[in-house]
Each structure stands twice: as structure tokens, then as C-alpha cells.
Amino acid sequence: MPDVTFKVFRGDAKGGQAIDYPVPIAPGMVVLDALHYIQGYLAPDLAVRWNCKAAKCGSCSAEVNGKPALMCKTRLDSLPTGRPITVYPMKTFPVIKDLVCDVSWNYDVNKKIPPYRPAKDGRKIYQEDVDRVQEFRKCIECFLCQDVCHVLREHEKKAEFAGPRFFVRLAGLEMHPNDITDRSEFLKNSSGLGLCNITKCCTEVCPEEIHITDNAIIPLKERVADRFFDPLRWVFAKIFGRK
């Protein structure tokens, strides 16, 4: 089998550069296999996160040939041959070392989301009630959507914008059949939902194929519109009482 050259970013917060590594290719190989080869034979201190190697844990996010992707899911035969393959860390988060970056901001955002509060314990729930939410609960927290979202990546609005991952989580809570927390203020003001201009890059990179924009963000925007931007509904509610 021929060798393919990998250009892998080596460096840390202070800077770094791409280093070339020749890697022998086996059938069915994914990018993460190549990095393991580099670690095992060429550079034992190459930092890379991974766990499941099966696109189930969301640890191995990086940018392969400039596209945010899970390394364990990116087959070499899906990439153009004859050219080196570049592997860089996610750009939106500060680099710690090599391909590993500091994603702790995401965990801080998560803490601020108003938690689940059940209406009633042990109530019957039907499949039709959970179908929609189960899609959101597929999220493996790879943060690729956060990485690609231009509001974070280009405009650095980390202080006021929760990002697509957390819109998915919020949608999962808002549409949960048994949850009664009211998150509309949070959605409109704290989450920065309005900063999303529904340009769908998050949906394009989501390895779990969650329709982030269509099924989570837009419905949330509609809910916010119900609450804050719909005079008709407001009049209706005044006349007939809140439902």
C-alpha cells in the first residue's frame, strides 16, 4: 500500500506549524487511524482526543482538509488522493496542544441553561411525544457545530451566544413532553438565538445528522415569535385567556 502524507498541526497556544508525516494506507482506513499510526511510530507525544472510534462519543473533532469533521468517521478514500491531507484543530476554540483544544466554554454555557423540571413524575408518554426530542438527544457533543458556526468562529460572540449545540439542547428541553420550565426569556435574551442567521453550517457538519437549523433553531425562533413578536396572538390571548 502506498504512503499518504499527512500535514498535521503541531504546536500550542503560542503557535505552531504543520508537520508532514508519511503514513501507510490500509483499506477502510479513517483519519484517526492515521493519527494513531503517527502516535504509535513517529511522534508519541502527538496530542489528540478520541474515545470510541465509532462516531459515538464526539471526542475526535478536528478540521480535515479545512472541514470540521470527526476524525474517526472520515474515511481516507472519501478525500482527494494524491494531495497531502491537512489535519488542524478546531479553530473556534483555543489550542491546548496539537489537535487538542480547550472546549470548556461549552460546559460553562451548558450550566446556564434552565434545567429540566417535570410536570408530574411517572406520567405516560407516547412515542409520538418523544420522536422529535429523541433526534436532539442523539447529540454526542462533538462541538463541530459550535466550531463551524460563524457567529462563534468569525464574530467571537461567545459572551452572548450559546451556539447550535445548545439550541439543540434547549429545543430538547422545550419540546420535552413532561417539562414545564419556561425558557422563553432565556431564549430571547440570554441564549443569543437572534444572532443565528439560520445559514445552516451547523447542520452541514453535524455527524449525527441532526437537522439543527430546521428542527431545533427555527422552531425555537417561532416559539420566541409567538411569545414576543405576535400581536395577533397577544390580542387573542387577552380575549380568550392563555392556553
Binding site: T92, P94, V109
Partner: peptide, 17 residues
Amino acid sequence: MEKTVAPAAMVKFGTTQ
């Protein structure tokens, strides 16, 4: 959501890998 992150964004229009 405090700002915890140094500028990592690409600077110029059209820059990409």
C-alpha cells in the same frame, strides 16, 4: 457567558483550508 477565548478566527475574507 464570559469571554474565555482568544481570537482564533481567520482574518481575511475567503481564507480557508
